[in-house]
Design a protein around this nucleic acid. Structure first.
Length: 721
DNA sequence: AGCACGCCGACT
DNA sequence: GTCGGCGTGCTC
């Protein structure tokens, strides 16, 4: 018996299987999808069995597999096949696809031992004649309870315990337990659906046996979660399973608790904050069919359910569903693929749908479902403030209006959330006289100022230097910290409102595990009056006492060099606006910006997605961007800039002579074109049909996959360009 | 990925 | 003459 093994190394040269012989002892247990330990060259590696052959003629000596790692295969049939699909779509090695479909504990990788956790019990095996009084006490306790925790039994009498164990009267028994403790403290609310919600649930649940992609467009606070839960209920009634994807950041304990209150222990949770052991345990709940719902971030789309009933993707527009490293897959594509295979619906939900998916819905490729009303029936009032005017009045940071509204909340004991976009290049040192900006000598990106160490540092490679005092370009000493960060904003706020309780939430204050949640919990409990933060405060927070949301620099995200910056700005502003007035009190939103006439900002005022969509789509059409075409990116990198240039020109030539109806842009420098002395180049492709170019991508991948000096990658439908 | 093999420069 | 640089090729 021979097996074809895919080893754990992600090298493109090893993107094929190797044949091994299976010794007798493993023959009955080895299955396709099992992990095995093999000797490969000089070392030992783990790998997946992809095929079993009973006879094989070979012209080279074959080694035996060293051992079989699992009793049950870690990759089931659907996953094995899904890996092949992933590889094809992402131009990456098959092993990297399988690895990213599995939790760390189950990857083929040596030295990743994640132990199962056991509790030791003790049971009675046989009776004992003439026991001592202590022994009798223990035996009777066991007779009564059936089994006891080891430590409880030992508490009765340690000495009797030892003797009985030696005499084989009692026996220890290990029982596996799961690490993630039950957190269901929340009570399930018995919610009555409104008409809109009812209609959506009815539509989806009457259609659970056909592949139907739905786009659920529901304004913030319209009760999408409740709709999801009602759909899930029907899926469970049919004894089927469901995957619910949520962006990492929205996967808060309060979100999970809402589901657990409804579905109790029918749920497994998968997200990056869990330890490897916890992820392993949650995964096993799925494979052992102990749960029917998995709620998780991107990679949960690979949950190995064997009887899927539906897939829900919340916050469909979120860029987190695309993995930013290889394999560069998009969870939505995987969802559609699995749903098609299983003949089930997919629900893509959002308050601010992506232009691509909303267009598909308009064209009838997706079935559009809408929730227009908030559950509490009032949308927050949005005020736009022109900062050009405010600065003329001498108010650089807080406009008079925002300041006054904050004072009002403080007086009324209501809470305020303030958003400052970090993307406004807030801590970049530049000269106020000549505009000179200090950049990293290795990475060509602006250095950012760190107050704690009084240094300027590169965010990419870590290069640091002391703060500049004089502009090296023009000699001016007007070289200053420009703009402001959340830390500065917090300091300013403390000065302005010395008696208020202020908390800051950004990458600096949330780096420790659990810090993020602690800030949110404390704010939710009312321990603070004002929450200041970056984008991370925009999503999912649901606090009834928040009646004011202020955005300090509403148009900062418009300056990001990306064709989706308008869309991102609208999404972000709508999301934060949605944090206000979720309870009984009416909410208000103040957005400060230099460019309040921009359609991405002024449509937020009336929560007018349609109008935003119409404006944005015009521009996409004019400049030929999605949804009017597809994009792909060929990325190149290497230490020798000239070689990178050479190869990129070669690839361009190849594309020119082998494609038609494809627009080829570049090669050009990406926004950051040099990191740690490695040079980057990219070629951007625009096309209407993937078939016009896909085989070319395959050729390019094959041609350059073993290239040494220049590394070539292909990213289908990239998120960042 | 890692490791061996192999072919040219500066050294006890 | 040898030690060692890292380019090339192979791993069942």
């Amino acid at each position: 018996m021979y097996v074809e093994v895919l080893v754990e190394i992600k090298a493109k040269q090893l993107d094929k299987t190797f044949t091994y012989k299976v010794p007798k002892e493993y023959q009955k247990d080895v299955k396709v999808g099992s992990r095995v330990l093999v000797s490969f060259g000089k070392k030992q590696l783990e790998g997946f069995v992809l095929k079993i052959n009973f006879n094989k003629q070979l012209d080279y000596p074959v080694k035996d597999i060293l051992s079989l790692i699992d009793k049950e295969p870690v990759l089931n049939e659907e996953m094995l096949e899904l890996g092949v699909f992933l590889k094809k779509k992402t131009f990456s090695t098959l092993i990297s696809c399988y690895q990213s479909m599995l939790p760390t504990a189950l990857k083929a990788k040596k030295n990743t031992v994640v132990a199962k956790k056991y509790t030791t019990y003790v049971v009675l095996k046989q009776d004992l004649e003439n026991p001592t009084p202590k022994q009798l006490l223990l035996i009777n306790a066991l007779k009564e309870k059936g089994k006891l925790l080891k430590k409880d039994a030992q508490e009765i009498s340690l000495y009797a315990y030892k003797t009985l164990l030696e005499k084989n009267i009692i026996e220890e028994e290990k029982e596996e337990y799961y690490r993630l403790e039950e957190t269901s403290v929340k009570k399930d609310k018995n919610v009555i659906l409104n008409e809109e919600q009812e209609a959506v649930v009815k539509e989806v649940t009457s259609n659970l046996h056909t592949f139907t992609p739905y786009l659920l467009f529901g304004v913030t606070g319209s009760g999408k979660t409740e709709v999801y839960m009602n759909i899930l209920k029907e899926v469970l009634k049919e004894k089927k399973q469901a995957i619910v994807l949520v962006p990492e950041i929205s996967l808060t304990p309060q979100f999970v608790a809402t589901f657990k209150a409804r579905f109790q222990n029918e749920i497994a949770i998968l997200h990056s904050a869990l330890s490897d052991g916890e992820k392993y345990d949650e995964w096993r709940k799925i494979t052992r069919k102990e749960v029917s719902i998995v709620i998780g971030a991107r990679s949960a789309i690979f949950a190995p359910f064997t009887n899927l009933g539906c897939i829900i993707i919340d916050e469909e527009h979120s860029s987190t569903y695309k993995q930013e490293n290889t394999p560069r897959y998009n969870a939505i594509d995987i969802a559609l693929y699995r749903a098609k295979k299983n003949n089930i619906p997919v629900i893509l939900g959002s308050a601010t749908p992506s232009l691509e998916n909303y267009t598909k819905a308009k064209l009838g490729k997706y079935h559009l479902l809408t929730l227009k009303k908030r559950v509490n029936d009032t949308m927050p009032k949005v005020t736009l403030i022109d900062m050009k005017e405010s600065i003329k009045q001498g108010n650089r940071l807080f406009s008079k209006e925002l300041y006054e509204k904050i004072v009002q909340r403080l007086n009324n004991k209501e809470q305020t959330i303030l958003l400052l976009n970090r993307r406004g290049y807030s801590t970049i040192i530049s000269c106020n006289e000549c505009g000179y900006t200090e950049k990293c000598p290795h990475c060509d990106i602006p250095l950012t100022y760190h107050k704690t160490s009084n240094t300027e540092r590169c965010h990419y490679c870590g290069y640091g230097r002391g703060k500049l005092r004089i502009c090296p370009d023009c000699g001016s000493n007007e070289i200053n910290q420009f703009g402001l960060g959340t830390q500065r904003l917090e300091e300013e706020l403390i000065k302005m409102f010395p008696s208020s309780r202020i908390v800051r939430m950004d990458v600096d204050t949330t780096s420790k595990k659990g810090a993020h949640q602690k800030i949110i919990d404390d704010f939710g409990k009312g321990n603070y009056d004002i929450l200041v933060g970056t984008q991370m405060i925009a999503k999912g927070l649901d606090f009834p006492n928040v009646t004011l949301v202020g955005v300090l620099n509403g148009d900062a995200t418009l300056n990001i060099p990306d064709f989706r910056s308008g869309e991102r700005t609208y999404q972000l502003l709508s999301q934060v606006a949605g944090r206000s007035g979720r309870g009984e009190k009416k909410g208000e939103v103040v957005i400060q910006a230099f460019n309040i006439e921009h359609y991405s900002i002024d449509t937020v005022k009336y929560h007018d997605f349609e109008k935003f969509y119409d404006e944005e789509v015009k521009i996409r059409k004019k400049l030929s961007y999605p949804p009017y075409c597809y994009l792909s990116l060929i990325k190149l990198q290497g230490r020798d800039e000239r070689r990178v240039d050479e190869i990129s020109i070669q690839i361009r030539r190849y594309l020119e002579s082998n494609t038609s109806h494809v627009l080829i842009l570049g090669p050009s420098n990406p926004t950051v074109y040099k990191i740690n002395n490695i040079y980057y180049k990219q070629i951007l492709l625009k096309y209407k049909k993937l078939e016009d170019i896909f085989s070319c991508f395959e050729d390019i991948y094959e041609q350059y996959k073993l290239n040494k000096d220049v590394f070539v990658e292909i990213d289908l439908n990239p998120i960042k360009i």
